[in-house]
């Protein structure tokens, strides 16, 4: 680490990068990471699926083959045809339109779950590695105890007073995955907390916990965080499907993949193959999310990614020549 900082502001300015990539602008690092992900077949698959997901979500805001509330009463339970590529459901609504519109709901759920689980997970980690031993060991034991509560029980508990809503799903998923994340991130975080540069930063003033999560040491945690967050996002989509089917997920009338899957369950005796599409969509996207985390971990690691090291070296030379380095 080149720039051990003496105050918070400077560490923000220079400390964005990793151990060896400290002074490379984030934008350039991002470009290199995406490019090296693209060069792997797995990473390319994940990136393409993500791009399609986002594109369809955006498109569905402006255009779907049929308006969501349009129902074709004469053609309820219709088989796939040119007019309705995936058929229609029990009230004659177009399944494809609902599937497309569902992708934006699931995108929102996945993003919010990532956010909530990151906040809960990092807060728990911070407690577990804090300097006060009583607090830390209490944190460990509380996380160990609560981690066993299944998502669906939490969702049921929240759904009783608050009714069904997206926030119930996000709260239930965010809490379980957050605790999970805390448990998995904690070893890396406590290693980081003991590392020399955090000690140095601490000696110059400042809380240890704050230093661990400061931009200096985040590169240490970011690989495991990337994997965990992408798992959270993927699992939240699976949970949404399950909870919606059980009646404690998204409210009826809101399009989501779980909703389409649930509708298609009733369709099974009429046109069994229709069941394939929503399920395939979910499986595809969740697989891509799992793989995305893995490839980000591999590509964002300066030790494993040669391109990233080359970039760091190039930028280092440049800044050295112009004398702009800290």
């Amino acid at each position: 680490m080149t720039s051990v900082s003496d105050d918070g502001k400077r560490s923000k300015r220079f400390g964005r990068g990793g151990h060896t990539t400290g002074n490379v602008p984030l934008r350039m690092r991002f470009g290199v990471i995406i490019r090296s992900m693209w060069h792997q077949s797995v990473g390319r698959f994940a990136l393409i699926v993500m791009a399609c997901w986002i594109a369809v979500s955006l498109l569905s805001l402006f255009w779907t083959p049929y308006p969501l509330l349009y129902t074709d009463g004469g053609h309820a339970w219709a088989a796939p045809s040119a007019a309705h590529p995936l058929g229609t459901d029990g009230v004659g609504a177009d399944v494809l339109s609902w599937l497309m519109a569902g992708s934006r709901t699931n995108l929102v759920i996945a993003l919010l779950t990532m956010l909530v689980s990151a906040v809960i997970g990092l807060a728990c980690t911070a407690v577990m590695i804090s300097g006060r031993r009583a607090l830390a060991s209490a944190g460990v034991v509380v996380v160990d105890a609560l981690i066993a509560i299944p998502t669906v029980l939490l969702a049921l508990l929240f759904a009783v007073p608050f009714g069904t809503s997206i926030s119930v799903i996000v709260a239930a998923c965010g809490m379980t995955y957050g605790l999970n994340m805390a448990r998995i991130v904690k070893p890396s975080a406590s290693l980081a907390a003991r590392s020399a540069y955090v000690e140095a930063a601490r000696a110059m003033g400042g809380e240890r916990v704050a230093r661990v999560f400061s931009p200096i040491s985040c590169p240490r945690l970011s690989p495991v965080l990337a994997v965990q967050l992408s798992m959270s996002a993927g699992t939240s989509i699976l949970a949404e499907a399950g909870l919606t089917y059980l009646g404690v997920g998204v409210p009826s009338g809101v399009p989501s993949w779980g909703h389409t899957l649930t509708t298609s369950v009733r369709l099974i005796s009429v046109y069994p193959l229709t069941v394939l599409w929503p399920g395939l969509t979910v499986t595809l996207v969740v697989t891509a999310l799992y793989l995305l985390g893995d490839t980000i971990r591999d590509c964002a690691d300066p030790l494993a990614n040669v391109e990233l090291r080359k970039l760091a070296a190039a930028v280092g030379r440049q800044t050295h020549n112009t004398g702009a380095d800290a």
Binding site: V265, I268, V275, G279, T283, T287, Y290
Partner: peptide, 15 residues
């Protein structure tokens, strides 16, 4: 292993 973990239980059961 990865794809199997991405299958929703509901859909797996239906299949």
């Amino acid at each position: 292993a990865i794809v199997g973990g991405a299958v929703p239980a509901l859909w797996g059961g239906l299949l």
